[in-house]
Design a binder for these strands. Structure first.
Length: 434
RNA sequence: GCGUCGGUCGGAUAGUGGCUAUUCCAGGAGACUGUAAAUCUCCGGCCUUCGGGCAUCGGUGGUUCGAGUCCACCCCGACGCA
């Protein structure tokens, strides 16, 4: 089964399509579940499949460090290794350039709390003349590995392992080589995800460098990817990544260059839209980029979404989304409902024997959520599991949240096919953000 | 009855004459967008014009410039001896 992307219906920039991969079909738009270390945290592959998820995204940096990409290769590839037979993707490690570098704030060393900058900036949070948070990275000067766990230069990035502090080096070629070993169906070019606080000059510098890395990623992939023995079709598809921060000129330039990039007549199989956004501008950025990218290839909006973002992204031409939020907030006790997020740790749920979501994402008004968790358990039980720190809490909450977000995108897809997108969007957002 | 040790936030603790009484847990709330996250942050005596002000370490006195800390007595608890 070779790769193909067939558009079934268009609505403005939005598209409904079928993305075929060697490990199965993805009906797009689709939400990609995040399984960074070859596991969707707290869920078995059977549970992931049972909530309707079609594809899993793992991470190159994390699998390279643990257990090592060669072990994944020797296990027979990521599908066999993690017992997920459906489509898979790997991110290139480009996000870790950011999350272990510029996002790593001053006064580090408090575990997760050391991270002080997100990739999404609130309105007005970006002073024009603000210096990069991580000067070492921006200037390319000698870096103190105590303050930053990554250092960028023209050829690649040096990382300090988050596990044991050892030093490692990623280049575009190395990232693709590792991704070939891991063996996901769709892989990404090695890029730099910049901080939203970086100034324009730095966004341009990083974008230009990402373009040079994209070309190297493409060249290495073309020359080294394994192919089907009979048809010579590549077994893995490579997505190029558009950067440019929140700047219209940079975004359009990046879409132009990445969209048209070829090595010996071979271009990217799809595209990622990456980097940092101003929350207010995100949908416009996606629209600018997608007006330029080739229409007949899939576009993945990297690291987005929250429920509202999915409508905005799809309207502006994105086909795939991945986001850690659904599973992360689930483990921390926050559940999606059609009436907004709830924190199951709140005292009022201790004795709530009703329904988590009285109007399920997949149902009609008044019909409760049909996921395994909601079908079988009360808020009071989940409250008990979280308060007593039982592992099942993370599992049941993750089942619900992934079910919610995956099926929200499926509902959006249906609404485009049924010509009811605007009504569905209006009704959903009114209820969710009331 | 005598003796010893102890009494600090809901629980457990640190604190042995000095400035804002420590930490953990439990409790209340918030955050989380290509996962260094089953994590992190904040709140927790009273009053406040939001600048701050006033309290507080079983009780009452005392010593001292200054007491959770030292002294006396009392209350309560554990243990030991009668």
């Amino acid at each position: 089964m070779a790769f193909s992307f067939k558009i079934e219906k268009k609505m403005g920039r939005a598209r409904v399509a079928t993305l075929t991969t060697p490990h199965g079909v993805i009906q797009t738009p689709a939400f990609v579940t995040v399984g960074t270390k070859a596991t969707v945290k707290a869920l078995t592959p059977e549970e992931v499949a049972s909530v309707g998820a079609q594809v899993v995204l793992a991470n190159t940096y994390h699998l390279y460090l643990e257990p090592g990409d060669e072990i994944v290769r020797d296990a027979g590839g990521i599908h066999k290794f993690m017992n997920w037979s459906g489509p898979t993707m790997t991110d290139s490690g480009g996000f870790q350039v950011f999350s272990l570098g510029a996002a790593f704030g001053h006064g580090a060393g408090k575990g997760a709390g050391g991270k002080t900058v997100g990739k999404i900036a609130e309105r007005g949070a970006i002073p024009e003349k603000m210096q990069p948070v991580n000067k070492e990275n921006a200037d390319g000067e000698a870096t103190s590995v105590h303050e930053s766990l990554s250092k960028i230069d023209e050829d690649g990035v040096s990382f300090k392992s988050v596990i044991d502090g050892s030093l490692h080096r990623f280049t575009p070629e190395r990232s693709i080589e590792i991704q070939h070993n891991i063996g996901a169906d769709m892989i990404f070019a090695f890029d730099e995800c910049t901080s939203p606080l970086a100034p324009y000059e730095y966004q341009r510098e990083a974008m230009d460098r990402t373009h040079r890395w994209a070309k190297r990623s493409l060249a290495y992939h073309k020359n080294n990817v394994k192919k089907e023995s009979d048809t010579e079709a590549p077994l893995q598809a490579l997505f190029g990544i558009v950067q440019g921060g929140r700047h219209e000129d940079l975004r359009k330039e990046s879409a132009q260059i990445i969209g048209a990039m070829e090595v010996d007549g071979v271009g990217f199989d799809g595209f990622g839209i990456g980097g940092s956004f101003d929350k207010e501008d995100m949908y416009s950025v996606v629209g600018w980029v997608n007006d330029i990218l080739p229409e007949n290839k899939p576009r993945h909006l990297l690291g987005i979404g929250e429920p509202a973002d999915l409508f905005g992204g799809i309207e502006n031409g994105a086909d795939l989304f991945d986001c850690v939020a659904a599973t992360r907030i689930a483990r921390n006790g926050t559940l999606y409902t059609t009436e907004g997020q709830i924190n199951i740790n709140n005292a009022k749920y201790k004795t709530d024997f009703g329904k988590i979501d009285g109007n399920g994402i997949d149902g009609v008004a008044g019909v409760p959520c049909a996921c395994y968790t909601c079908t079988n358990y009360t808020p009071a039980y989940l409250s008990h599991l979280f308060r007593s720190k039982e592992m099942l809490a993370a599992t049941l909450a993750s089942i619900h949240n992934v079910y919610f977000i995956v099926n929200l995108v499926k509902k959006i897809r249906e609404s485009i096919l049924n010509d009811t997108f605007q009504e569905f969007k209006t009704a959903f957002l009114k209820s969710y953000y009331k």
